[in-house]
Amino acid sequence: MKRMLKIYMEKPELAALLLLLLLVVLFQLRSGGVFLSFDNLRGFFGILPEMALVAIGVTVLMICGEFDLSVGAVFALMPMTMAVLMATGVSFPMALVAGLLVCVAIGLLNGYLTIRFAIPSFITTLGMMFVARSLTVVISGGFPPLLPTDLPTWLFTSFVGPGQLLRMSFLWFLAIAVLVSLLLSRTNFGNWIRATGGFLPAADALGIPTARVKIACFILCSVLSGFAGLIQVLRLGSPLPSIGEGMELQAVAAAVIGGTALNGGVGAVFGGIIGVILIRVIDNGLILSQVDANWFKFAIGSLTIFAVVANSWLRKRAKSIKVEV
């Protein structure tokens, strides 16, 4: 019994999960039952995948011991690249490939610069955030191009499922979340990511190609952000250059709320997703409860601090439970 308790208390995503359940109940009561209504859930699940995909990438990268502040800018740049190309007559699949290649290039550059010159990724990606955001505005010329009308939105944003509850994007998110989660927990590459972020000198001494592992995580993070941006643009029907602003910090907050350690090694994709759901629930729940929407950032901020404190407290408590190892 003690043993089970210890195992669960050591799960870093536990605190967030409990809090989520609490908030759902609270908002359901405060909103007079609107919160869990079909229509509200439909809207909720329609938006969730966009930030969740970003958070998945950021979580994996943080477990690997690095940061990416450029995700919000890449979120805008990728679909803008596609829109500009499509405006000149390039087909959707070709534009998609080009857009994803831009993401790969940014991730590669982020990782290469960080490792080659041994600078904190916080700095590299902060620079990249400005660069990518600027490029987004520059290539659009200030006037976002109109999207062609024959885009395969059915593949990304159309409503599907029982009662049209979910958008296709939710299925993409689900598939990617499961895949990345398995990659992290069930493959040798996942083991290398954890070792690299957990204790770099040991990973190096054991012959893990840590530089390549980190670069791969940077690329994964960029590609997922770009893809998430594409989904948002297809949902909105227009490539605005300002989308994704502030998203980089929300994604970090989500990862941290979900139990990812800032210095790497600890965390889970599931935790990051719980973090995003919490943020979305608070956003949505505050509005439904008719609270002034400006309290949103206040709530996210306190939640982030609270989650980290709760997690470290839980871990300390778990450690003090004497179970022989």
Binding site: N191, A195, G198, F199, P201, A202, A203, I208
Partner: peptide, 29 residues
């Protein structure tokens, strides 16, 4: 630096030399 403290004993033992069930280009389950 011969161990990663945030990982389990079983995982630590095999870092870099993991037994793999199915593999492709050296990556696997």
């Amino acid at each position: 630096n011969s161990m990663v403290p945030t990982m389990s004993i079983a995982r630590n033992l095999f870092i870099g030399r993991e037994p793999i069930k199915y593999s492709l280009f050296g990556f696997g389950v």
